[in-house]
């Protein structure tokens, strides 16, 4: 295997347990540079636990957990994020009492080495004109869709190589959902690698290169987006065909 074939993220035997409860039970997963990989599954299947474990916010065990040649096991979230992998958490979780600008500033606070913060911020505001308009408003006053844009924008301020997105379309109006999926595709086209957790199976498989289906903490199904779309399990369980 040449270095360029080495996946950006390699997960082998990842287990996440909260006390006696096993949320994720020994999964293998890879993400290659430049891909959108989607992680699908019902509520409680272990999707969010997987993402939280990757960035070190959930208790984890694994045989191998390697990102860009770095062993992630034992590293705290702040170190992992500084190495170029970041998470947009479920429910957006913007800092509601801080202004839009302050949210962005904190997003880029520790990443001067990874890119020029002023340039990254200008780029961000060009990408999200609505955030530029609301720069000095409290983030808590934004609409759900705007908060999701801010949450993504804030994560992009760290100029990541790999972006983990946890249910970015959750609770948003259909039009806004379309905008978010367009944005994710644009980001990939501009070179970002994305691991996307979603309940919106149809739209996720439309933009993804590959996908995995989680059920009860195990990988039930995996393949290219086209294969998954065509598979009878997905058709019956998620796409309602």
């Amino acid at each position: 295997m040449t270095p360029s074939d080495e996946p950006l993220l390699t997960i082998e035997g990842l287990t996440v347990s909260y006390g006696p409860v096993e949320a994720v039970d020994g999964i293998d997963l890879t993400v290659k540079r430049g891909e959108i990989v989607t992680l699908l599954g019902a509520n409680g299947a272990g999707k969010s636990s997987t993402l939280n474990a990757l960035v070190g916010l959930a208790p984890r065990k694994a045989n191998r957990l390697v990102f860009a040649g770095i062993d992630l096991l034992g590293l705290p979230p702040e170190t992992i994020v500084r190495r170029g992998m970041t998470l947009v958490p479920e429910g957006r979780r913007v800092f509601a009492s801080l202004t839009v600008e302050e949210n962005l500033i904190l997003g880029g606070a520790k990443h001067a080495k990874r890119g020029n913060p002023a340039a990254v911020k200008a780029d961000m505001l060009a990408r999200f004109p609505i955030l530029a308009e609301r720069l000095h408003q409290k983030a808590g006053l934004l609409s759900g869709g705007e908060q999701q844009m801010l949450a993504i924008g804030r994560a992009l301020m760290s100029s990541p190589d790999l972006l983990l997105l946890d249910e970015p379309s959750l609770g948003l109006a259909p039009q806004v959902v379309d905008a978010i999926f367009d944005l994710i595709r644009d980001l990939r086209d501009q070179g970002l690698t994305i691991l996307l957790v979603e309940q919106n199976v149809a739209q996720s498989l439309e933009i993804a290169d590959r996908g995995y289906v989680l059920a009860n903490g195990r990988i039930e199904l995996q393949g290219s987006a086209a294969e998954l779309r065509a598979s009878p399990e997905i058709q019956n369980a998620y796409l309602g065909a």
């Binding site: 979230p77 994020v81 958490p89 800092f95 509601a96 801080l98 606070a109 760290s158």
Partner: peptide, 17 residues
């Protein structure tokens, strides 16, 4: 101020707890 709101997410900004 951000830590008072959501400490876990602040760590995702790369700021040391």
């Amino acid at each position: 101020r951000a830590a008072a709101e959501d400490f876990a997410v602040l760590r995702l900004m790369g700021l040391r707890a």
